[in-house]
Nucleic acid binder design. Structure first.
Lengths: 336, 336
DNA sequence: TCTGGCACTCGATAGAATAGAGTGCTAAGG
DNA sequence: CCTTAGCACTCTATTCTATCGAGTGCCAGA
């Protein structure tokens, strides 16, 4: 591979990606010569495309068809031509601001609404993951009796998100004991992150200690439970691909939420915002790309939003949308 | 339409449906003569099929193809041959029992797990709707401070389901006032159905009255909020249809949860368990059938489960699955 | 009333022919 | 040395034709 990407080759690669994203059809040299700003003959373009193909940026579906970008080609395109700051079609995105200035209800709805917004903006499948349970700060703990020996534990965090857990007690308790324990636990742990629940020293009251112990166990379990995920617009993958079995594969994969979550985590942990086709490392998603962005609340990355579409996606637009939405979400949550 | 459905015609119709459901291919007279228990010649079958077609039970994709059932044909099949009580392939369904005897967490997970179970059993898209908010019995009301003038209201119902609502107060309150109001409201309304919240007489304490008033408002809003819906296995529609645009249409429709909910409600309100193709009255779902069943907790229908698949679905199996799962869910929730 | 026989219809499949988009290569011109 | 016009070549997509065969409707005879 003699990597010598001069500016003309780059321009050609860029044009190929743009055209292919637009029309979903292999683009040929003469088409490029006509359409693009490159002022050379189709023959020259042919030569350059040949080299680009040998270097792995382009490929031909078959001899005597035009070229389409490879994953590597998309990667170069994204790294080189898609500026993070530029807001592509800002006009179209006015609705984002509007969306986030409107008041919103519970956090869960906020996330699923955000997911819906993203899917509407981009016409691809959108994913929003909520804050990881460990980082949550406890605001209030309530024990509510469901049965003589069965209690519902409610934990409200600093953002107003409610987590719940039913727990079976070893002995019967009455309402007043529950109320007492609720107050005690809330006072004790208010402001503590769910992730760092220490042991509790004895309060002197055996009955109370017992109840608190069991509640603490439930809280620890809560912490380990799966992150919340909101996936919307999965139906759009049916629009993104013609082959019905590609649609099947991708949809089936998207239904496995944990897979999607770890996918997004992986991409972010590599410091990337975009992962393309084979880079995802998930065979059924070989024809997909993922664009992700963490959102930041009070200086901390608490969750992320992502977008799953075909490798042949409008990267500038999608990146802009994802960035704007993640910024909006972070800001909105910071005000909270 | 000379409706004279003798038993032989019925047997032929039944065989056509069975074969078509199995192979997804138009079934011809000679095939039936060979395969089925009907001991007449293909010519006779042809004559009967001709009549069945004229009566609207069968149709031909084109001249000189076999017959496939119409919606009317499926309807007759379901009404006549699918016995409610019979449990088709009970062997396969052993997992249902197992599923419902295992303990389960919060109700929300219960519903989405149930939805997943149904989709796994049938390979179609499953819908579970939670209890309608109005019928819920209040068990506990908690007010938790989020900000000086912002409060999170939690309502736990008799099943341990938590509903929440943020409310903006007209004046500042302190923690002790919130605690007092929580206790007051809980005592006052424990056991009352959310649907019948009456006005409250004054308690004598102006501060408290005010807070309770605002809380009541929030509770009333809660009541009006959308039913919870859990749809799983939507990806299966990609398996059910070959035409990619049918897949698109159906998926897009399933994403509109309110549509699905009202669809299920409509079917149930007509006292039906099965709605077929055009009977649904939703154009994009013209090639789909829906099988629904309410589930009963303590003698009351509190929600429903449903299944969306192609008109060409295995009705006996699906009906058995839906019935068993709804029974299981109802029983499980009654114990709760 | 049923059934075997038969002519007929029409989609599906396979081949052959054609058109055309696009390529790689070569040779001439700057 | 780089560019470009020209050209032969390749290969898909399209169209057309011919053929096959599954399935039908109808009729005449048991």
């Amino acid at each position: 591979m003699s990597e010598s990407m001069d500016s003309r080759k780059a321009a050609i690669l860029r044009a190929v990606v743009d055209e292919y994203v637009k029309d979903a059809e292999p683009v040929g040299s003469s088409h490029l010569a006509r359409i693009s700003g490159i002022q050379v003959s189709s023959a020259t373009i042919r030569n350059e495309m040949n080299i680009l193909e040998h270097d792995g940026y382009l490929t031909q579906p078959h001899t005597s068809a035009g070229r389409i970008p490879t994953d590597k080609g998309y990667r170069y395109y994204v790294d080189t031509f898609v500026s993070e700051s530029e807001n592509s079609d800002v006009m179209q995105f006015r609705s984002i601001e509007e969306f986030f200035t409107k008041a919103h209800g519970a956090l869960a709805e906020m996330f699923s609404d955000t997911s819906r917004l993203l899917t509407k903006l981009t016409n691809y499948a959108a994913v929003v993951t909520g804050p990881s349970p460990e980082s949550k700060l406890i605001r209030s703990i309530q024990l509510i009796s469901l049965d003589t020996k069965k209690v519902l534990l409610l934990m409200v965090d600093s953002k107003g998100v409610v987590e719940k857990k039913t727990l079976e007690l070893s002995e019967e308790v009455d309402e007043s004991a529950l109320e007492m324990a609720s107050n005690y636990l809330t006072k004790k742990f208010r402001g503590a992150p769910l992730g760092t629940l220490v042991e509790m020293e004895s309060s002197g009251n055996l009955r109370l200690d017992n109840l608190c112990m069991e509640s603490l166990g439930a809280l620890r379990e809560l912490r380990g439970e799966a992150e919340s995920v909101y996936i919307e617009g999965a139906a759009n993958v049916a629009n993104a691909f013609d082959a019905v079995d590609t649609v099947r594969r991708v949809l089936a994969t998207l239904e496995q939420h944990f897979l999607v979550v770890s996918l997004i985590r992986d991409v972010l942990s590599k410091g990337q915002k975009v992962a393309i086709g084979s880079e995802l490392g998930i065979e059924p998603l070989a024809e997909c790309s993922v664009v992700v962005s963490p959102y930041v609340v009070e200086g901390e990355r608490v969750g992320s939003i992502g977008l799953v579409g075909p490798t042949r996606m409008n990267y500038p637009k999608v990146l802009a949308a994802v960035n704007l939405v993640s910024a909006g979400l972070g800001k909105r949550l910071s005000e909270g």
